[in-house]
């Protein structure tokens, strides 16, 4: 059987989604039997874009012109392009001050230096190219990446998740940090699939997987208000990973 020909690229990000794949230590040797890691600059030399790819996994958001060039080239030569991680899917942490003047932000760090002057407000991949599937999380769960690889090997795409972190949390019979402890837990509004990793250790969900489809923001805001959190506080937290939350 022909191996699955993959390209794996990182844009504006922390490399955590790519590292999550390399953290599948037990499965990596087996993956090599079925996968050709053809373009994977973080782990393999040389980095040459050549031929067509069965799938391309892209980590990170777009914030520099050269990233757009790479993304367009990858899109053009890939059957499937998958946004991996919350930065690629929603903008992520780098986008948390989107809506403000980028040049002023940039100058607050770099002063008058022009080295990074091409930098623009971080955008998710789907703002610029067609994206065939999304894997969310900061970082995504290893199991999600392994399932993605499994789906791609069958020529399929992963089915989208539609439940919130709260459902995962209830499955684990965790104490509800929002209702029982009045903690600012973003579980009701956040995409599930993580097994409620944080609330299971009594740490409130920080929303790192971005919005769940059909999130009922106004209802949730009411609930948060009852617990003493005003809209600005909740939206401030939500926008840590996704600038698109609007009141």
């Amino acid at each position: 059987m022909k191996p699955l020909r993959l390209a794996i690229a990182g844009l504006t990000a922390c490399s955590g989604c790519q590292l999550s794949l390399l953290n599948c230590e037990q499965e990596l040797p087996q993956m090599l039997e079925r996968i050709e890691f053809h373009f994977f600059p973080m782990a393999c030399s040389p980095a040459i874009l050549e031929g067509e790819y069965d799938a391309t996994l892209v980590e990170g958001c777009l914030s520099m012109p050269h990233e757009l060039d790479l993304l367009l080239a990858l899109r053009q030569h890939s059957r499937y392009l998958i946004a991996v991680g919350t930065c690629a899917a929603w903008g992520g942490v780098a986008a948390l001050r989107n809506g403000e003047n980028r040049e002023e932000l940039r100058q607050s760090v770099y002063g008058s230096s022009t080295a990074t002057s091409g930098s623009f407000s971080p955008q998710p991949l789907h703002a610029m190219v067609a994206v065939d599937a999304f894997i969310c999380g900061c970082p995504p769960e290893k199991e999600e990446l392994l399932n993605l690889i499994g789906d791609l090997l069958r020529g399929a795409l992963p089915s989208p998740i539609s439940h919130p972190v709260c459902s995962d949390c209830q499955m684990r019979e965790n104490l509800c940090l929002l209702t029982e402890r009045s903690a600012l837990c973003l579980g009701p509004l956040t995409l599930g699939g993580c097994g409620a990793r944080c609330p299971s250790l009594e740490v409130p969900c920080e929303g790192c997987r971005g919005p769940v489809p059909e999130a009922n923001l106004s209802e949730a805001l009411e609930l948060y208000l009852q617990k003493g959190y005003d809209h600005a506080a909740v939206l401030g937290r939500l926008r840590r990973f996704c600038p698109e939350w609007k009141s």
Partner: peptide, 17 residues
């Protein structure tokens, strides 16, 4: 892709350089 497009990026490091 017909042409070989050599991307002049340093591989096997974290990040881009």
């Amino acid at each position: 892709m017909s042409d070989t497009d050599k991307l002049d990026i340093l591989t096997r490091v974290e990040g881009h350089g």
